[in-house]
Design a binder for these strands. Structure first.
Lengths: 248, 248
DNA sequence: TTTTAACTTTGATCTCGATCAAGCTCGAGG
DNA sequence: CCTCGAGCTTGATCGAGATCAAAGTTAAAA
């Protein structure tokens, strides 16, 4: 409850790790300077809630480092995660007063924030921010629709395999490795959080991970480090169109 | 296979039924005229496929009248609807070559289309189109996330009740009625299409509709006309936060 | 009018994942 | 070192919804 505020090395946009992927990606030097003047950083410890659904939300921003989740909860407590926010992902919606979802930091996290008013003015003035935001929103919409297929039609095993292959692919993109052959990555979520993302119970998540391990699709080192000896095998288990899509 | 092309009374933007809700909603007279010059209408009979996932897509457009569905299909035939396109909804994505989903006309339908190239130029020149498209995309993203909660966590009965209350609310918005008390509307989808939307089988859809009828939550006249005697009761069955949200 | 086929309903049964219930693991704090 | 508890695994059982099967309904076509 205390902080949010310990200033974690305010950065210069020039060497920001998400400079070319976030909402500012298309900005020219002068636009970047405008953004620079209205931005501020906030840090959150793992487990902290960034904002509650329904609360007044007077800022928008980008995840700089760390991971957060977007979740919806029904009155009786049933919970569905509707987004996993990784570095460069955008939080909040211009033109809306209140938060639509709970946003929770899953790891220690730093956000680059803008007060909503100035940000909206900026959007109206400079097309590059709005353009980039549209592009990012369309990508998120595609991801949400892919998730609808997963939630509505995939089996528990396919859900787990799909989730793991998304994490694996993302990890391969951030690092330099190629998407075939063996690769390793960290599981950033607890079994329970995975269950909330996949529309399962934590017991089922645990069982299916064990099953995939027994079948040699994955190997575990500890509870959180996953090794995938054959990525195509994992993709196959995910039931996706095996287009083997090139990393973008 | 034949037509698509029978010219259904090309309209003047001035008296277009979706003038103030579609992607052109914010346009000034001069911008509207530019759009007018690159637009063309296409008609589709009920059941016709507008475009197949993966196909080259050289246009974008808006649904003017009628209803279409957006669906994803796995290799083994499992199908998930990821969107229901109503009048004013936008189809296609600027900056993408191929269609991501199957688009199928569910009723006879008329679309207002723009070739992709000219539309993208227009978007780059005039901010009002891009602004409106961003707003619409954000709304669709919210709808997709609401659907994720439905698909991941709601029971079959809640899914049906949620779907019916969405249709009822939309109908109340289009017509003049208020959202409380009795209201009637048409079911635009077959049981199978509803099942694909809700992540169920058609048998379960049929059974749950029968159950809601038996319990007096809805009444049916024929297979397709639904009467809701008490809308709050239906909302309650849907399991949603009962904020009784005012129609926007 | 009869035929036909798409759509819907209902019944019987099965199965996957939920639920209930112990234990296990491992790292932080005393 | 031990204790504690959060997170994870595994087993036993249950039940909502899927699946398999058969009729019923309706509207268009012949």
């Amino acid at each position: 409850m205390l902080n949010d505020l310990k200033n974690s090395a305010p950065r210069d946009c020039g060497d920001c790790p998400i400079r070319h992927r976030a909402v500012c990606a298309r900005c020219e030097a002068d636009e970047l300077e405008q953004l620079d003047q209205i931005k501020y950083y906030r840090s959150f410890e793992a487990g902290r809630t960034v904002i509650w659904a329904g609360d007044q939300m007077d800022f928008v921003g980008s995840v700089v480092t760390g991971i957060a989740t977007l979740t919806q909860t029904m009155e009786d407590g049933r919970t569905q995660m509707v987004g996993l926010l990784l570095p460069s992902d955008f939080v909040g919606r211009p033109g809306r007063e209140t938060a639509a979802y709970d946003v929770v930091a899953v790891s220690d996290m730093v956000m680059c924030c803008f007060r909503k008013g100035p940000f909206e003015e900026m959007m109206a003035r400079t097309p590059h921010v709005a353009q980039r935001l549209l592009e990012m929103t369309l990508d998120e919409l595609d991801a949400a629709r892919e998730w609808m297929l997963l939630l509505g039609r995939k089996t528990a095993r396919e859900k787990i395999a799909s989730f793991l292959s998304i994490l694996a692919r993302r990890n391969a993109t951030l690092n330099l490795s190629q998407t075939t052959g063996a690769l390793m990555f960290d599981l950033p979520l607890t079994r329970e959080a995975m269950a909330d993302y996949l529309g399962l119970t934590l017991e089922t998540v645990s069982r299916q991970i064990s099953a995939l391990k027994k079948d040699g699709v994955i190997e575990l080192q500890g509870k959180r480090l996953v090794k995938v000896p054959d990525f195509d095998r994992l993709l196959d288990e995910a039931g996706d169109d095996s287009d083997g899509g090139v990393l973008s």
